[in-house]
Design a binder for these strands. Structure first.
Lengths: 200, 200, 200, 200
DNA sequence: ACCTCCGGGACCCCCCGTTTGT
DNA sequence: ACAAACGGGGGGTCCCGGAGGT
């Protein structure tokens, strides 16, 4: 199996714990839970082997769980920031799609989506990791749903649309990566915008 | 790591080669490429260890590629059969969503979607497997696109909508599995049906 | 490997150093030197990880050595107390065998004998620990030998008999534990009593 | 921890499986179950790691179990051979003691007794290994008991004496190793011979 | 053509006993 | 008195091949 070794380790100017988490987040996002080994995480984090179980006594699964939590926090922070700036749901969707598309391309199609990558292969076999993934999806959906309710959709409609948006976005990211065509993400987002243009 | 061993091996009344492929398809679909080992495939296939490299000289990756090809053939056959029965795109979408939802639940949330499961972790690191996955996604999209063109959508619109449908459906399958709620697949399909109700 | 975790930690009302020693003594006695880790000792002692090297700069081996010294002191104190009470060699042997047998059973066959447990695997590779074990065996033998000399045996005979008594007792403890039958210890003691019934 | 690496690997003129077993028997006998690693066994056996789990799918514990079984078979064969040659119990005891003593010394006090070494630390935590050890002790005792019954002892007496002989012999081996004095084994055997001189 | 036996190492995640800094 | 960090194995499993039989 070719390794596509990441030459550039994460920047060392942070705590060991944080470097491990950042390296893990990137690698899990790129290749999923099982395709990434702890040795690779530690190498990328420039962290010695033994200090991993100091910071993460429950091992690889705990690292994945905390990496997901970190991802969730960053995602929500981004959404809140856009909300504070007054972006509508459609504008938010368009902007995020554009960002994700360009980031996907820039990474040379190495990057994936954290939740999907970790969910495949670990759900439902690793219950604690499963729970963390579910919690992230849930909070994401709730936030998008709230946005839609603010724009006049009923709670039921908003939730369903939020679900669809998230599902389609994640799916689009997967396919864009497979096709190595970032425009897919943007086109899917356009179709989704049509779905939420006006409350019916 | 808990093993969730599949008790029922695939039925032995077929050729060794076929049993291996069937076992591989099921396991890869459930847990992805890296989380499944060759030993497990062979055990489930009731196949002797050494005979794997007789049938699949290129090893695990070749098995995955042929399993994907098998999956693609089955999917297209199903779509063609529905088309022959005169189903519209919306009807096809509704029916498949219902089937997938019930099948997801019946498997106790063990099953996933073949292409997504194998894509995560193997794209783009395993080029031949990547190519097979891409080909499957492409043919799927082409078929749905054709269906939509037949109902009056322009080629551009049809392709974009087909892409969105596939993306959203795959995403919905992932989230439904994570949430262990099969209705998600159906609700997403309903939203998608609204998108393709009438050519604009 | 099953862990057989000891639920009841040693009582915390003593100094950290002492708690570590008591926990170590129990664990080494149960499972030997190599099967017990420092982490387990510290957990059982409710002692923080880092403070171990404060009290025992030479690490695990030093802990074992001091635990053996503690064991030796307790054994000799017990023998002296019985001697002060006027017990004959035979009576001492019978009493100790009965005590050890019942204690073995009460521990659910977890307990072993300190010297044997630590000797296996550490002799002769760890010279300092080896020396401590040897000193304990020697003092034990000397005490029993003195008892026999007081009852009329020659020095040579007394030493040989003491050696045999200790050997047979330790061996009996091992086998009783393997067979989970505490009567073995008592039956062996009875045979030994026949050996020392009267000086010939 | 000093390693006392055995330079001379076991002779390579046998099957891999057998070489692993022979190396394991020697190492477990010398240092016990937990102090010996699989890597060390394989190095001594000149066997690659992967072939170990071909022959011993249950790993280290299975190797230990089979090594014990091998030891048991050799011991019984030796006893049967002596019996066939018409040795009495006392003669057998004396001869074996002398052999064990000289072998202990010749090994530079590295060798121990297989059953005791493996029992410490593994009993009762590893039930399958425990069972194998128990079976070996049992068969040994039965054989010695039968010998004594043939010489006129009652079944009860013979069993108890056999138990004592085995216990004292094993104990003597431990102490002789600790004291690095092979005469202990012989002196203990002499005391035991006094016990079985004539049926009472 | 099809399969079995037996490796062959690299690598898996985990935990070891220890040292450093505070 | 102790938290943090440290590397080096711990046992076990990975995917893959070669030799030989039928």
């Amino acid at each position: 199996m070719p390794k596509l070794k990441a030459k550039a380790a994460v920047e060392p100017s942070t705590s060991t714990r944080d470097r491990i988490l950042r390296a893990a987040k990137q690698l899990f996002q790129q290749r999923g839970y099982y395709a990434v080994g702890t040795a690779e995480i530690l190498e990328q984090a420039q962290a010695p082997k033994g200090s991993m179980y100091h910071h993460f006594p429950n091992g690889k699964e705990q690292i994945a769980i905390e990496a997901i939590e970190k991802h969730r926090a960053e995602l929500i922070a981004r959404l809140l920031s856009l909300e504070a700036d007054g972006f509508t749901a459609a504008e938010t969707l368009r902007l995020l799609a554009k960002e994700m598309a360009s980031w996907l391309k820039k990474s040379n199609w190495l990057e994936g989506t954290m939740l999907v990558s970790t969910a495949v292969g670990s759900v439902p076999h690793l219950p604690k990791l499963h729970t963390a993934i579910k919690a992230s999806f849930d909070e994401w959906r709730e936030h998008i749903g709230k946005l839609l309710m603010n724009e006049g959709w009923s709670k039921t409609q908003a939730n369903s649309l939020a679900q669809t948006i998230i599902a389609a976005t994640d799916g689009a990211m997967i396919i864009a990566r497979v096709d190595q065509d970032e425009r897919i993400v943007i086109k899917v987002a356009e179709d989704l915008v049509r779905l939420i243009e006006r409350p019916n």
